[in-house]
Design a binder for these strands. Structure first.
Lengths: 208, 208, 208, 208
DNA sequence: TATGAATGAGTGTTCATTCAT
DNA sequence: AATGAATGAACACTCATTCAT
């Protein structure tokens, strides 16, 4: 049995454990918020003991940092902005539909993020650097491309990309405030995306 | 000196004290979030003792409820949606400018609200009922009016109003994530509102 | 108008107020115990403000001391031992009936007393000196008299008096433990006194 | 090493810890009463930290309930009534001596019990059901037996048993009020029991 | 490496006491 | 003299973190 393999296996196990704990933390943090969440609950959710958490993370806060910094985001919210499909020439509704769907599914994480950014501005910087700005860049590239081929007006795509992302984020927020009984719940994601895309492309105004 | 005056004066003092404490709570809650905030800090910020808080509010949570339910909102976030000026025939940029400005100024409270709604859905219902839905109705009325006089296309104004509000809220969120050094900070509120209004009215698409 | 009268009147008012507050304190203390009782509740029960209590008593504890030391006891528990009627040549049942009745009526105060004596032995000493010992002396005198005239056996009346008092106190305690649904509740005070007196005079044993 | 042994050992440790804390609580509660006692003091007395108490008991009150409901009573006050020796044909003085001795040794607990019963009648019901009534039944059985074999008069043994228990409890109360310098302290338990038994059997009255 | 009992600092809340009116 | 708002010390309870097994 090679020694390295043993080492690698160990590393792999460590990584899996970390993921397992972070997944549990994400669940609990996004439901209760950082400070209302208890390590006991995270441990239970992860199926490990409280002590084990501290074998993999320095502190509860470190767990939050790791959570926001990477693991969980890689697989969900990150895609809110950074979708591979964005490189294809897609119709705007399809792009929006993806983003709205992902956003709605991860609204709890988004709120957690917003709340914690307010308390720890570094989180915002980190998140902006790692996720938001690259995501916006991709969206901007998409818009630039469509402006280039003449299917969009020559607007400020820097603002435009932020408006699109903001709109998605904002709809999520409104949805969250109104609750499951609210107006937006009556719409299917698809229809909502279409309506938004329609307004975005054609505008509210009457064509002169 | 009339007797009633005494009673009224007392009542007035009580009201002022409540406001004073709520103002302090708003400050602390929105900086640290509800559970990280301590009553000691709120008391200090309000310039009273901890015990005094409990002469006016049943619990820390009651303080939050009062904060969200009324006082503070009346004077700030409420106006995000419920502006009297909306009844006038105004240009969309002017309407948006107001809303964006108010929203940016109160972004901390908005985040607090979103975070707490997630933990206490009743807050969302209460806020939706008291503030959001009436606000959306006003906005919808404005849109309906403009659709009526032919200055806007006949879009679904129910969705439209939510898109506008969502856009404002979303831009606040993006701004918050990017921080004060972010792209949106470079724009004046006025210019931002104009750009948004422009996109909203004319749309991103090329006129055929 | 004589000055002294004014002074006296003032003194009388003071005394009445004190009594009023002590009566309220007795009510609340005996229901909740000293430390669970709040000055707010005592004030409300007395129909005065909290501040007023402190115009008449130095502290909550002082109120307890005053309560135990005198006022309230004069009119109730004191009589458990110190009855004027004891000087008459009465039948034992009649004497016991009085004592049992008074004791049952004031069982809450007795418990308060016992509980507080444990924490503040001086209370015990004070109470013993002022109430119990004189009371026992009277009872002993009564027993001595009956021993003297041959209607009782020549027992140790020092112990005998304590046994009688103890029996009454103990029956109160048992009654309190068993609650209102307990066995002793089914007995009338009169019948209970008779039974006790019967056992006390004749004894449980068979006459040889 | 068997696995079960490990589990059992843990359980044993838990039980010991509970006992240790309850013993400390008994000490502190009976000295200061329930509400004046602090968890800090109980923890110190038990030689553990405050937090540890809450690993074994839900609340301070739960600690009191556990104390009254079981552990401590099993080994002390319970025996005030429920002695195995009572089944033997013993002389009344011997029976009384046991009871008086146990009672005097646990007078602090008795007072605690009486005080808390007043505030929490369920305690009384629980105690009556679990301890007092069975104890009285045993005593009654003993009296019935002696009535049956003609060594006692045919009195109401239901009342009689309560009178005996009451007498013991009452003597404890009188002793507690008079303090260690009081009259009863001069008597040995043995002599006191004899005197009481004497009065109980023969009565105070002159044999006609 | 995993555990979970032990820890003790920290916090919301109560309430006796004070004092300006 | 009477009030009751203000105070702040005190306390029950929680929970992140440690460490012996």
């Amino acid at each position: 049995m090679p020694v390295q393999s043993n080492h690698k296996k160990k590393e792999a196990i460590t990584k899996r454990r970390k993921r397992q704990i972070i997944a549990a933390a994400r669940e609990v943090f996004s439901q209760k918020g950082f400070s209302e969440a208890t390590t006991a609950e995270i441990a239970q959710q992860a199926g490990v003991s409280e002590g084990t958490i501290y074998n993999y993370f320095e502190s509860k806060r470190d767990l939050l940092v790791s959570l926001i910094g990477g693991y969980a985001l890689d697989e969900s919210l990150l895609n809110l902005f950074k979708s591979p499909s964005i490189n294809n020439i897609e119709s705007l509704p399809a792009v929006l539909e993806d983003r709205i769907e992902i956003g709605f599914e991860n609204s709890d994480l988004l709120t957690l993020l917003l709340a914690e950014i307010q308390r720890t501005p570094e989180f915002g910087e980190q998140y902006a650097r790692q996720v938001l700005v690259p995501g916006l860049a991709l969206l901007k590239a998409y818009l630039d491309m469509r402006v280039g081929n003449g299917t969009l007006r020559p607007v400020d795509t820097e603002v435009g990309s932020r408006i699109i992302v903001g709109m998605v984020v904002g709809l999520i927020a409104v949805h969250q405030i109104e609750g499951d009984g609210g107006f937006l719940s009556k719409y299917s994601i698809k229809d909502l995306a279409e309506e938004v895309a329609n307004i975005l492309t054609v505008g509210l105004g009457t064509k002169k």
